[in-house]
Simulated assay, not measured.
Amino acid sequence: MRPVTKRILFLSFFYPPDLSAGSFRSAALVKALRSQGGDRVHLDVVTTRPNRYNTFKREADSSEQHDGLHIRRIVLPKNKGGLLGQAWSFLYFAIVAFRFARARKYDAVFATSSRLMTAVLGAFIAACKGVQLYLDIRDIFVETLAGVFNATVWRPVVWLFSMLERWVIRRATIVNLVSPGFLPYFQSRYPDGRFSLFPNGVDADFIEPLGCTDKGRVKGEPLRVLYAGNIGDGQGLHLILPALAEQLRGRVRFQVIGDGRHFSSLRDALSLRQLDNVELLAPVPRQQIKLFYEQADVLFLHLNDLQAFKRVLPSKLFEYAASGKPIWAGVSGFSTDFISKEVANAAVFPSCDVACAIEAFEAVHLASVDRRQFVERYGRERIMGEMAREIMAMAGST
């Protein structure tokens, strides 16, 4: 007898070839679900055409069909950016996604979300269809919103999102939290919730360690410090990097690869100080980023000094750690404890603290180290395999 095919709706605002931690995570999970489910599972992935960065555009088909997999990429309307532009883009995505799902039958809904609204969309569709919901929460959006927009005028907005969060979490069958640091927040508010802890992990493209490149550097030449990733509120680069570059002028040359909400703030702050030791580069494909890692002497990481980010475990940390390169990290809270226990040769300083950052930099050991045990423990393929089994078990129980 042919096994019954379980149909799963998979919602992810970002998906390859777009650049984001959520995009790469989603692709790895889809691969794991297809591998485990075989002909017992059909996935409808609803996402967007690449849109995260204006400086990184890649073409992708609006519809892809494979055995047991349909990828529907929604083309978002052009907007001028900003909060209103982002809100309109998501609303458009939500409307088209709902229309896509409305006429189709599903046994379960999966949604991965950082800004909560993809989770809200998943919960709404799951409720309309009367099926189980699996949520993958990559950020505590309510706490982030309250920290970034802390003026009185924003309190009604924070309250509204708090109500949405409550409804979404209570509606979900299983909620995965990408950082164990999120657990106290959610357990204290939703003691009856079922929570899993599957982190981002190390992507298969980055499991091989990189060599140290000090042999290629002329003696006395500035050290090459690389940051690669988003430039937004969460990273707070504009609050720390200009001062570091100024104090380390002549000793360090920073390379920043990325884009985001505070790119212009960072650029303007560097210009104001007339700094010539920071190079700003547009996002590059993943295949190219490894070349920049290889050429770097130190990999730089930073989180803004807000309460919400004290619970975060940055996805970039796994990629950095797998490289074997020295890491210079400005973090607080859970990330500090995680790095101290799990990541060798990482110099840590409190977020946004320039004096401590300089002190930590002096302690950086300029040599690659063996972190193979870390890679084995946090390999994304294994983590997504375990997560896929949990999703399949949930879908199979309907």
Rank of each mutant, 00 (worst) to 15 (best):
V4E: 11
K6Y: 05
R7P: 03
S12W: 02
F14K: 08
F14C: 12
Y15A: 14
D18S: 09
L19M: 05
L19W: 05
S20H: 01
S23F: 06
A28P: 00
A28D: 02
V30H: 02
L33C: 02
N51W: 12
R52I: 09
R58Y: 03
A60Y: 00
S63Q: 06
H70Y: 08
R72P: 00
P77T: 13
K78F: 04
N79D: 09
G82F: 05
S89N: 13
F90W: 05
F90G: 05
L91F: 03
L91G: 03
L91C: 02
I95P: 01
V96S: 02
V96E: 05
F98S: 15
K105R: 14
V109N: 01
F110K: 07
T112A: 10
R115G: 11
A119Y: 10
V120R: 06
A126S: 14
A126Q: 11
C128E: 09
C128Y: 06
Q132L: 08
Y134L: 08
I137Q: 08
F141V: 10
F141G: 10
L145K: 09
G147N: 04
G147V: 03
V148T: 04
F149R: 08
A151P: 01
W154L: 02
R155L: 03
E165N: 06
I169N: 11
I169C: 11
I174H: 08
L177R: 07
L177P: 06
G181A: 07
F186V: 04
F186M: 04
Q187E: 09
R189H: 13
F195D: 01
N200E: 06
N200T: 11
G201I: 10
A204H: 12
D205H: 06
D205A: 11
I207F: 04
P209E: 12
P209L: 11
L210W: 02
C212G: 12
D214M: 13
G216A: 10
R217Q: 13
G220R: 08
P222I: 02
V225P: 00
V225K: 00
L226T: 01
Y227Q: 13
N230W: 03
G232P: 01
G232F: 01
G232K: 03
D233Y: 07
G234S: 01
L237K: 09
A243G: 02
L244M: 11
R251V: 00
V252A: 00
R253K: 12
R261Y: 08
R261L: 08
F263G: 01
S264C: 08
S265N: 14
S265W: 13
D268T: 14
D268P: 00
A269Y: 02
A269H: 02
L270D: 06
L270T: 10
L272G: 03
Q274S: 12
Q274A: 14
E279C: 02
L280M: 07
P285Y: 10
Q288A: 15
Y293R: 10
Y293M: 12
A296R: 05
D305P: 02
L306D: 10
Q307E: 12
A308H: 06
V312P: 09
L313P: 12
S315R: 05
K316S: 13
E319M: 07
G324S: 08
F334R: 06
K341Y: 07
C352G: 04
A355T: 15
A355N: 15
C356E: 13
C356F: 04
I358E: 01
I358W: 00
I358K: 04
A360E: 06
A363K: 14
D370E: 05
R371L: 04
E376V: 13
R382I: 15
E390V: 15
I391D: 13
I391T: 15
M394I: 13
T398W: 13
T398Q: 15
